[in-house]
């Protein structure tokens, strides 16, 4: 599904290398987790993959179902099936959540040459999916993420994911700022979307999210590279011993 080879990227303004040769393949139907200490490049990887300005890819490739995504505009990547759940979802005053969702769904459909969703059909689908995420009508009416609590913002991200039905989902520290109950709700939302044709890349600091979203593969990232990969037990190892042991071992 997602294939990253020898990916190097640096911050445009500071000319500072952040990703120093990431190799990673996420298969369809699988959940991969990336863990790593602060500053290891986890979030940068998610931004580079989704096309945020300010990063320069200096080497390597990233393909989604064989298609090079690094040359695409962010909206083209989205239409191709890539989705990033933001660590800090952005507040957009003046743009209603519902308008935002409908615009996004139809923009992607249009880009793929599909028919736009009618207003009634959209309303039906969005209501049903919002309900499972405990998102009420009031939250749908409000401006995007404005005045939302941390948990509401993350649930709203998952709702967008559910509506856009991407092929490849990247979750950037979706657990940050969530209490246990909110995390459970978000994890349930993600689990409901697990499907054969869909890949997940879950970026997290902590093992606890992975109690709820059980990964198939766990990667440890440090200094801009994947330094170790393994099964779910690797996450437990981090939880118990921290990163120091692993980093010492691969050094």
């Amino acid at each position: 599904m997602l294939e990253i080879k020898n990916l190097h990227a640096s911050l445009e303004e500071e000319d500072k290398a952040i990703l120093k040769g990431v190799d990673l393949t996420v298969e369809a139907g699988k959940v991969h987790a990336i863990m790593g200490p602060n500053g290891s490049g986890k979030s940068t990887l998610s931004y580079v993959l989704s096309g945020k300005d300010g990063y320069e890819v200096t080497d390597g490739t990233a393909t989604l179902e064989g298609e090079d995504i690094l040359d695409m505009e962010p909206e083209e990547r989205a239409a191709a099936g890539l989705f990033l759940a933001f660590q800090y979802p952005v507040e957009i005053p003046g743009v209603g959540n519902m308008t935002f969702l409908r615009t996004a769904v139809n923009a992607q459909r249009k880009a793929r040459g599909e028919e736009e969703m009618s207003a009634t059909e959209f309303l039906k689908v969005v209501r049903a999916r919002a309900r499972t995420l405990n998102i009420d009508a009031e939250m749908l009416k409000r401006p995007v993420n404005v005045g939302f609590s941390g948990g509401e913002k993350k649930r709203n991200e998952i709702l967008q994911m559910a509506m856009l039905e991407p092929k490849m989902c990247i979750l950037d520290e979706t657990d940050s700022g969530l209490d246990v109950d909110a995390m459970k709700l978000v994890a349930d939302g993600v689990n409901a979307l697990r499907a054969e044709g869909r890949g997940f890349l879950v970026i997290t600091h902590y093992q606890r999210l992975l109690d709820h979203i059980k990964p198939d593969v766990v990667h440890i990232m440090a200094d801009g590279r994947i330094v170790k990969s393994g099964g779910p037990e690797l996450a437990l190892e981090v939880e118990n011993n921290g990163y120091a042991d692993i980093l010492a071992e691969v050094a």
Binding site: G51, K52, E73, P74, P89, F100, A104, A107
Partner: peptide, 24 residues
């Protein structure tokens, strides 16, 4: 720009996203 990227990452084109933010 942050809001613009957020909208584009959801598949909304730059022009349409700019219009949405302008209208808001």
């Amino acid at each position: 720009e942050t809001a613009l990227f957020y909208l584009r990452s959801r598949g909304v084109s730059r022009d349409e996203a700019t219009d949405l933010l302008t209208l808001a």
